[in-house]
Amino acid sequence: MDGFYYIYVLLSEKDGKKYTGYTSDLPLRFEAHQKGKVPSTKHRRPLKLIYFEACLSQEDALKREKYLKTHYGKMYLGNRLKSYLSCQTKSENK
């Protein structure tokens, strides 16, 4: 899938917090996160990829990443991932 830029959200299985980023190579970037090569998530492993979007330009991807990090962007993701996140909460409470 050449030519795409990906915005992605990772969920830390350690602290339950989310990390949002962007990349042109999602599998390679996720592998870097998993191996502890990304300082901002190094101590929050293991991580799960829970969401991603593809954009045709780097500029659009950067704008979308910036938006998803805002209050309204976090609300959007919360609604978009509502069923997934509620399943995670239920399984943790068992």
Rank of each mutant, 00 (worst) to 15 (best):
Y72P: 00
G21P: 05
R80L: 11
L68Q: 01
H43Q: 09
L11T: 03
M1R: 13
K66T: 15
V38L: 07
K74L: 09
K18H: 05
G73V: 01
Y72V: 00
I50Q: 01
K74S: 08
R45A: 07
S12A: 08
V38W: 06
N79D: 12
K82C: 10
P39N: 11
A61T: 04
N79L: 15
K66L: 10
R44M: 07
K69E: 12
L85F: 12
A32N: 14
N93F: 05
T41F: 06
Y8C: 02
D2V: 05
K17H: 10
R64Y: 06
K35G: 03
A61R: 00
G16S: 09
P46S: 07
G36E: 01
S57N: 07
E53Y: 04
K37Q: 11
G21F: 02
S24E: 14
L26W: 02
H33G: 02
S91K: 12
R64Q: 07
Q58T: 04
K69F: 04
T41Y: 06
K66E: 15
G78E: 14
Y6W: 15
G36L: 06
T70P: 02
H33L: 07
Y72I: 00
L85K: 11
K66C: 12
N79G: 15
S91E: 14
K14S: 13
L10F: 08
K17A: 02
L47I: 15
L56K: 12
H71Q: 07
C87E: 13
L68D: 02
G21I: 05
L28A: 12
T89C: 09
L49D: 02
L77P: 01
E92C: 09
T20R: 15
M1S: 15
P27T: 05
Q58A: 09
G21H: 05
L81R: 00
Q58S: 12
L28P: 00
L49Q: 04
E31P: 02
P39C: 05
F30W: 10
Y19S: 06
I7A: 10
I50D: 03
F52G: 05
Y6S: 07
L56H: 13
S24A: 10
D25R: 11
S86W: 08
K69M: 13
D60K: 14
K66A: 14
K17T: 11
F30H: 11
C55W: 11
R80Q: 14
K17M: 05
Y51K: 04
L47R: 06
F30N: 05
I50W: 02
K90H: 10
Y51N: 01
F52E: 01
S12N: 04
K74N: 13
Y84Q: 13
K14T: 10
K17Y: 06
L47C: 09
T89G: 08
L11F: 01
L28W: 09
K94N: 14
Y8A: 00
E53F: 06
S12D: 01
K82P: 01
K63N: 08
Y51L: 07
D60M: 11
I50L: 02
T70N: 08
K42M: 14
T23H: 05
D15T: 13
Y76V: 10
Y19V: 02
L68K: 06
A54M: 11
K48L: 14
K37G: 00
I7W: 06
A54C: 08
F30V: 12
